[in-house]
Write a protein that binds this DNA or RNA. Sequence first.
DNA 1: GATGAATGAGGCTTCATTCAT
DNA 2: AATGAATGAAGCCTCATTCAT
Lengths: 193, 193, 193, 193
Amino acid sequence: MARITDQNRVERLKESTMKLVVEKGFGGASAALIAKDAKVAAGYFYLHYHGKYEMVNSLLHSVYQEFVDRLEELILQASTFEVITKKLINHFFNMAINEPVKLKFLYVLTNDYSFVIDPEVKKKTFQFITRLKEVGQLSETLDKNITDEDLYLFLVINTIQFINQRFKNSLDKVSFNEADEEHLYYLIQKILK
Amino acid sequence: MARITDQNRVERLKESTMKLVVEKGFGGASAALIAKDAKVAAGYFYLHYHGKYEMVNSLLHSVYQEFVDRLEELILQASTFEVITKKLINHFFNMAINEPVKLKFLYVLTNDYSFVIDPEVKKKTFQFITRLKEVGQLSETLDKNITDEDLYLFLVINTIQFINQRFKNSLDKVSFNEADEEHLYYLIQKILK
Amino acid sequence: MARITDQNRVERLKESTMKLVVEKGFGGASAALIAKDAKVAAGYFYLHYHGKYEMVNSLLHSVYQEFVDRLEELILQASTFEVITKKLINHFFNMAINEPVKLKFLYVLTNDYSFVIDPEVKKKTFQFITRLKEVGQLSETLDKNITDEDLYLFLVINTIQFINQRFKNSLDKVSFNEADEEHLYYLIQKILK
Amino acid sequence: MARITDQNRVERLKESTMKLVVEKGFGGASAALIAKDAKVAAGYFYLHYHGKYEMVNSLLHSVYQEFVDRLEELILQASTFEVITKKLINHFFNMAINEPVKLKFLYVLTNDYSFVIDPEVKKKTFQFITRLKEVGQLSETLDKNITDEDLYLFLVINTIQFINQRFKNSLDKVSFNEADEEHLYYLIQKILK
DNA sequence: GATGAATGAGGCTTCATTCAT
DNA sequence: AATGAATGAAGCCTCATTCAT
């Protein structure tokens, strides 16, 4: 019971942190504000993290890790390049719909020189990307000129940018449908050929 | 008569601001740090701006405006879609080589929910983008399925992301050559067809 | 010619200083604000005073001195206690009408523990007050129980308070007429008998 | 559970604020100085007030309110005009003896154009003054020519001025005895008749 | 004489963090 | 485990003052 309460607290804290970091930036999201939004005491998160930076960084990594896990999962399922690609794009669209704050958080912090994804994690990510590239090239569904960086750029970064461009340009709630997803996939596969 | 405003001071201030905002984020780039880096008195920039936010925002807009001006210039020169596209990509590569900090600054702040490009400026930008799309579609060098947002995403955002991915992944000085530019152009034209 | 210009500058500076010290207090009346209001360069008054405090203090003393001079003049004219009293009250009402800012300035700074009238000047003032008391007591127009301090309190401080109470309680321009002056004189003479 | 707000800290803060505002004026009493004098952390009072001005203003109002409360109390006790008057004067002498800083603080800030007593409070005060005037006039112990403003001036402002004149003119500790109080009462009742 | 750009000490305030409860 | 009162370093900014022109 006590355990459950605690998990709720931590969960609320994470949600509030992501929301406020997105809205106000790392500096603008004060510990007091986050705590208040999460309905948690000001000093609460020092029981779980060493400081504000560590908390945000740790959140960033767990959000990023989710993506890496999904990427790994897709690679290991050993399906075709097209399917993997499609499913990866779908992964981000699902986030956009179900956890928009999380996706915005990922967007904001990955485009920042003061937060850097752990080199080990990045390395592992690129191992999967390399693997994916090989899958594509073997089946001749991927342009030979495309490097790992290109693949990452168009598949991952671009998808995140596509969605966030929508979030930013509209003042209302943004909705994404299958047509949007198809459209983006259409564009991306054109590059990757 | 009194001293004339020293343009070198102002210039140093701008450079230091961009550099530190890139390195440490808006919050991490303290006024004292910026002033020190610019070899200027602590309160100096309050003679030119109303506050730190205003200074950074104003810098962002003037950097963004440079891009818009270049875009306008290219559109008005009435050349082909391909030439305009190529020259636009070249514009960012030139920035990457000659003014890397400025490009990083543009990258960081355009990917942030707490800094927003003035709607009027954004609107004007998209008028040029629309114009460019029309040029492309008339000459049948641009895929009909591509929207304004797509064009902006692949031509502008993507180019900035491509370059910054390089900056981030390498610890050393990054250099770009014509081959890189060609490569990116090759990829982009594939999408735009 | 140059001399005339200069005198105007200094005069404007004094007026602006008094006005702003009244409105915003000593701390709130910044040197820049005063200079701007006086249409004078920011560093101008350092040619005449050693600093802001010195300027305000010197102004206070010259305004206070005006009163002392008037008091002396009245005493030396060797008229009756009643006439002197009436004319002293009239002196402040004239200030209220013709130089309200000056009177407010005097009011504000004399009711302040951080500005103190020079002991020498105060001493001299009380010599005149003592002299006045003697005049009153000799002619039996002044209550024997009244001390120097009482006389100063009711004649000087009270008159200033009477006028400033009016200034403060009304939002519009305040006007004083002979009836007001008569009324105050009536009240004061009741005390002094 | 967390610590309970330490009322001693708050009390010390109030004392130090009043003391330093009296000694150095609002501008001269810096937040750091006040905090140090109160033996409290630099940012402490922002937990209780929104800023320095608000703190001082709030203090002024609570000090002024004490006087209004006393005035109300005296009016409601339905005694004679003379008794009320005497007790009111006594109220200020008690403050002078027991809480001299508080009285100086009241003196300094009520004689300042940048601090204004809340109009509602002022209005209520004058309702009591009017009531007092009526009491005086009904019992024919108050001169019919005396207005509300006069009554306030001589009873309240004057008493405060009388005491503060003493404080200012003497370098040593000032003491007040019953004779002083009698003396002032004697003078005031002469006016009010 | 007069200006006003520039300085930098110091003001007000915030806020990450600690710790008594 | 959780709270929130308290701290104080550090942030942003103002402004009295200087001095090159």
